[in-house]
Write a protein that binds this DNA or RNA. Structure first.
Lengths: 372, 372
DNA sequence: GTATTTTGTTTAGCGTCGGCACAAAGCCAG
DNA sequence: CTGGCTTTGTGCCGACGCTAAACAAAATAC
């Protein structure tokens, strides 16, 4: 393989591979395999060890929560179904989701090397408090990282005793996952924008690292003005992306009454898929595409990313009419006409979960010896 | 001194100091000096060598150009007066300013280790083309880096034969200088916004490095919407920061006719200084502060910097009424009410020149041995 | 079967840096 | 003035991470 060509000599690559194999993270397959096409001694085939250790990933979203075990490389080994309605007590929810994860660990007998949590709100650094989790009915400022740590300790997860339970915003973590394992691979400056239920979230990955600002509150992209005559927003302005390009805005624009039974994203996505030929739905989609494009153009002017990845409703809008969205962004961004930024759909299932797992894997990758 | 405490042992600090002294960049003063207040052997005093090598820094601005020689630490050793009107031929201008710098080198007999150039327009990477230099009457896409290099070669500047003539946007370079030597020292995420003549420029320094986006076009902050009913902008929108918060906008808001004799910044600054008690001027200033604050709040939401530095007209507006500006930013940014970002005036004279010099110094600091 | 190509593995060597010991240079006490 | 005490400069040693080079192994080409 080209492992050698990734900036390191064969010698060091071999040493690292041996170390990782000793830790059970990868397996080295030295048997002859389907010829790589050329002559010479065939290279060993490294593969992630599917039976190796995992980290516990948890995600809170608008409709409930989910726990999963994630191996190296973002491979979801086991997952609970998305379940439950979020009560107003974050400690209770976190205890439940951690317990679900602990049950997965018991059932699979996997070794656990860390834990990560994704929440649908800004997470303030350095204390890890969830700020203004609008659609969770949680109190603003809930110390989710601390609560998560307590839940992990209470559940007796082995291996995370002295470790840190990493906690982050779901869109941020999704962006990290897309950058590592999805549609964002290789991008130097990756911008992600997504809308899951209410409001719009953003994330930026710079040179492989999340940019979350000086206190974790960056990429609050929901308050760019995209419709000067638009609806008032709780931020005090009007026509913000938050209220003009989220699932509720789409349902309202399409003249549909949002029902209580499913998530707003689910309803909006269903509408786009099944009724796109309906002129009213089509018009609403075009309207939201234009607003989203305006917001993305504003972000392009400020951040100049080399790739944009869209998730949630925005992914559905992109797929409904990619040309329209790309044209709006190119037309409304300052330098867009000369080139234009690639705009892609996100490509991973549960990218927030995978991103939370990446955070938990990070210390192991930084120094594999910590796994004593 | 506390040199040791800056993350390195005494041994390595001594080695580095000896190396830099051998190159003539610093001097080590081992004589007894005014007692540092405590007992023990007094530490050597390191000082930048004022007689050492310099780099050539050049700046093009709306009214002309300027060349300077800059030593380590951003010390301006010699400078030409700001002179000349910018003709439409960039090659001609660059030849003139480089020739002025070469004259400084001849007059002072300094050794030159590199050269940097600041221009008032976006500089596209990787080719170094000036995009849309609005107030220079230059053609958009002028290859300024290449022209600068040719000018350096033609002038026979010694020492930059095989080197790179670094070229960047003036606000970007000013931000870099403020971060290294000015009001931005110690900031992890520093946002700078400035308005010099027409339009508004921005820059971001992340962990000590300029963030200029994937192709050098980031921080085009001038097209944030700050006044939905505002004047149309060449970008196709209306009420952009570019046309609502620059010196021309201030003069117009204050009911003054911009004269041709001075730069617009000079006229606006003069008006703020001398006629702030005039109700019309005061009202215009308040209006621009509110618009600027709205734009800064949008940037805070997206970038979450830990410090903001303002230059040009915006510095003058900040100093005219700091409380108003800070209140607007806190009120209109999402998390501003809980804390608020420090907003400071820039603190260096000619910070673009100093920043251009920093670029030129960088290779020397990265590896002092290149100076053979 | 031999030569060639490609890769894994071992070894030696280099450069960087931290730790440590010792010298140097100032205070302070007698 | 002399002998501690404290703080800093400096030289030496070793750990560590890595590269380069040499050698061994495993496949293909002739």
């Amino acid at each position: 393989m080209l492992t050698t060509e990734l900036g390191v000599t064969r010698a060091t690559a071999g040493a690292v591979a041996a170390e990782l194999e000793a830790l059970g993270l990868i397996t080295v397959d030295s048997r002859p395999h389907a010829s790589a096409g050329s002559q010479g001694r065939p290279s060993h085939r490294l593969s992630l060890n599917d039976g190796g250790p995992v980290v516990l990933a948890a995600q809170i979203h608008a409709d409930g929560y989910r726990a999963a075990l994630v191996g190296l490389g973002g491979r979801i080994v086991a997952t609970t179904p998305s379940c439950g309605i979020i009560p107003a007590d974050p400690a209770h929810v976190l205890a439940e989701v951690v317990e679900a994860g602990a049950a997965l660990l018991r059932d699979t007998g996997r070794r656990c090397l860390g834990a990560g949590l994704a929440v649908p709100s800004a997470v303030a650094e350095p204390d890890g408090e969830a700020l203004n989790p609008l659609h969770l009915a949680w109190p603003s400022g809930a110390p989710v990282r601390e609560l998560f740590l307590h839940a992990l300790a209470d559940a007796g997860i082995p291996g995370v005793t002295e470790k840190i339970g990493f906690t982050g915003n779901d869109v941020n973590l999704g962006a990290l996952a897309e950058h590592r394992h999805g549609a964002g691979r290789g991008a130097r400056h990756l911008l992600c924008v997504a809308s899951g239920h209410r409001g719009v979230g953003g994330a930026l990955v710079l040179d492989g690292r999340l940019h979350s600002g000086s206190s974790g509150l960056a990429l609050e992209v929901g308050h760019l003005t995209v419709n000067p005559e638009g609806a008032p927003c709780h931020c005090g302005s009007r026509g913000c992306l938050d209220v003009e390009a989220d699932p509720l805005a789409f349902l309202v624009a399409a003249g549909r009454e949002p029902g209580p039974e499913f998530s707003l994203l689910h309803q909006a996505g269903e509408l786009l898929r099944t009724a796109y030929t309906d002129p009213g739905v089509r018009t609403a989609a075009d309207l939201l595409i234009d607003r989203l494009g305006l917001g993305l153009a504003g972000l392009v002017n400020i951040l100049n990313p080399d790739r944009i990845i869209l998730g949630g409703l925005h992914r559905a809008l992109l797929e409904a009419d990619p040309e329209r969205l790309r044209a709006v962004v190119a037309d409304r961004s300052l330098w867009g006409r000369s080139g234009g930024v690639p705009i892609l759909a996100c490509s991973l299932d549960h990218n927030s979960l995978v991103g939370a797992a990446e955070l938990a894997w990070q210390p192991v990758l930084d120094d594999p010896l910590v796994v004593l």
